[in-house]
Simulated scan of single mutants.
Amino acid sequence: MSVLRMLYLLLAVWGAIHPMYYFVQWFQENGWDIMAMVDAWHVNVAASGLVWDLTISAIALTIWIIAEVTTRRNWGALIAIPATFCIGVSCGLPLYLFLRSAPVR
């Protein structure tokens, strides 16, 4: 495995674990109510701006993944889409780059 692929994989794992730590901590303190978390994301205009920035990035990444997967026929790389929306762009993007950079058979 190349150094670059290993870096992508490490970033994907970090991008999954680090944000989840904060999400789980928030849920433990405030209850497991997803709508309460969405409300917390919009507590002020700076937070709302960040939410929209990440949402637009996630949509752009999803479009790119779908376009590339249909061209390259690498159907397994579609797993990066739920990773993006269930965990975050910090996991989905490096995961897709890891999967995309696999050697061609």
Rank of each mutant, 00 (worst) to 15 (best):
L99S: 03
M35E: 06
L61T: 06
R105E: 13
E29S: 15
M20S: 14
D39M: 10
M35P: 00
E29V: 10
G92P: 01
T55A: 14
S57M: 12
Q28P: 01
N30E: 10
Q25S: 13
A46M: 15
W14G: 11
V3E: 09
G92C: 07
M37S: 10
I63D: 07
E29H: 07
L9G: 07
V51C: 05
C86T: 07
G76T: 11
C86V: 08
L93Y: 03
I59R: 01
M20Q: 09
Y96Q: 08
L93W: 04
W64I: 12
H18R: 13
L95R: 04
Q28G: 13
P103K: 10
L54P: 00
C91D: 02
L50R: 04
F98T: 00
A58H: 05
N44E: 12
W75F: 13
I87G: 02
A102N: 14
W75G: 08
A58P: 01
L50H: 06
T84V: 07
P94N: 08
S2I: 07
I63V: 15
L95S: 03
W32I: 00
S48H: 08
F27T: 02
V69G: 06
A80R: 02
H18E: 12
R105S: 09
Q28Y: 09
I65W: 02
I17A: 15
V69F: 04
W26F: 09
N30P: 05
S90Y: 05
E68A: 04
Y21L: 15
P103S: 15
A58Q: 09
L9W: 04
V45Y: 06
L93I: 12
L9Y: 03
A16G: 10
A58I: 09
L78G: 07
I65V: 15
R73G: 01
A47Q: 13
I59M: 11
L93M: 14
L9K: 05
C91Q: 01
H42I: 07
I81H: 03
L99Y: 03
Q28I: 05
D33V: 08
Y96V: 05
A16H: 06
W75D: 08
A16N: 00
I56H: 08
A102R: 15
A60G: 12
V45N: 14
